[in-house]
Amino acid sequence: MFVPVAGGDLAVEIHDGDTPPALAIHGVSGSRKLWNWVAAHHFSLIAPDLRGRGDSFEVPGASIRQHADDMVRVLDALDLATVTVCGMSMGAYVAVDLAVRHPDRVRTLVLVDGGFPMPAHAQMTEELLSAAFAPQLAARERTWTVDEYLGVQAVVNPLIDATDPLIHEYFAHDLTADGHLRLSADTLIADATDVVFGTSRWQELTVPTWFVHAEWSTGPDSPPAYTVEQAQEFRTVLPVLREPVLINEVDHGGTVMTRAGAAVTAEVLAEALK
């Protein structure tokens, strides 16, 4: 379905399952197809393509606050007063903003490797940020077949299973029919800047919150976005935070884009939906 928001129409995919509905918000360079692995566990999910990505590619604008306001429009369009919200990476920051500014719309919250301050962000500069997203920006300058694009992504994301049909579907969704990447450069950089240099309002959360984090960041043995110790520190500050859940032997993307990671994330989401 398409939901009117400021500047255009937001694409939203509805997964019918056996649970109450949960709003699932993808990361900075992802799309709604990120949630296919979790949906496979028979969840009812509301999965938007955020503006500047996928089928919402032509909707201009960016910022954590803007995306959160869009999510309110999505809930209104579906006549949902309150739902569990699950956000991954940047989507977790959007989920936090939504829950802080609209606590009446968020029943419970699941944050997947995001939403809290990442220690690595403290070392980031605008130049380093631009360099970090240079490959995605360069990918926009050429056309791709799905297999070519998947081959490159399998190198960048060594833990994904390139033979998984859901992986194929995920990366195919990034491309137009003629092989161009459906990712707005302006939106990507603006959103990444907001995540890295903005201020998460996580300490203002009042709804029950679960936190799932990965053992690695980008591939085996890489430093994690959050250590176990850091996750526990968040819990000492935030009374509504449940015991953090570490997913072993997955990286940032693998929390939802691998069968093993998605199984753990799904288990936590199921607990939040109770």
Rank of each mutant, 00 (worst) to 15 (best):
P21D: 03
Y226R: 11
G54V: 02
Q123E: 15
M1W: 04
G115W: 00
L80I: 15
F2G: 04
L128H: 14
W37P: 11
H121C: 00
V5T: 10
S63F: 06
T145M: 12
H121S: 01
A162W: 03
T82D: 10
A39R: 07
A120V: 09
A39C: 07
I167P: 05
R51Y: 13
D164I: 01
R101M: 10
F133D: 04
D174A: 05
D164M: 01
L159E: 08
R32F: 05
I25P: 03
A138C: 08
T255L: 13
K274H: 13
K274G: 15
G17Q: 05
F57C: 00
V240F: 08
A270T: 12
A154E: 07
H41R: 10
A39F: 01
T209S: 10
C86N: 02
M124P: 02
D18R: 14
P158Q: 12
A272I: 15
V196C: 00
A131H: 14
A40N: 05
E58F: 08
M124A: 13
D9Q: 14
G30Y: 06
R242H: 15
D161A: 08
T84L: 00
F57L: 01
A47Y: 08
A260D: 13
H102K: 07
N36K: 07
P208Q: 11
A40W: 02
R65F: 07
F43M: 11
A154W: 10
D79V: 13
T199C: 07
Y93P: 03
L246G: 02
H173I: 02
H41P: 00
E126S: 10
M1Q: 06
H168E: 08
L188W: 01
P239Y: 04
P220T: 04
T199N: 10
V72S: 06
A39G: 14
L205P: 07
P135H: 03
P20S: 14
A95D: 06
W35H: 09
V106I: 13
D194E: 07
V28M: 10
R73S: 14
M1V: 11
E267Q: 15
V195D: 04
R140H: 05
A95C: 08
F171S: 04
L98M: 09
L98F: 00
I25F: 03
P21I: 11
G87H: 05
L273A: 04
D178I: 07
A99P: 14
V155D: 13
V264R: 13
T227D: 12
G17R: 05
L34P: 01
H173L: 01
A272D: 11
R32Q: 14
T258K: 11
H180T: 14
R201W: 03
V94I: 15
F211E: 10
D113L: 08
E215Q: 15
E267C: 11
L205E: 04
E58K: 09
D70I: 03
S63I: 06
P119H: 01
F171K: 05
L246F: 10
Q203T: 15
H26S: 08
P20N: 06
D174F: 09
R242Y: 12
L238T: 11
N157G: 10
V59K: 08
H252I: 03
V155W: 11
I46Y: 03
W210P: 05
A132W: 00
L273P: 02
V96T: 14
T163F: 05
P220A: 13
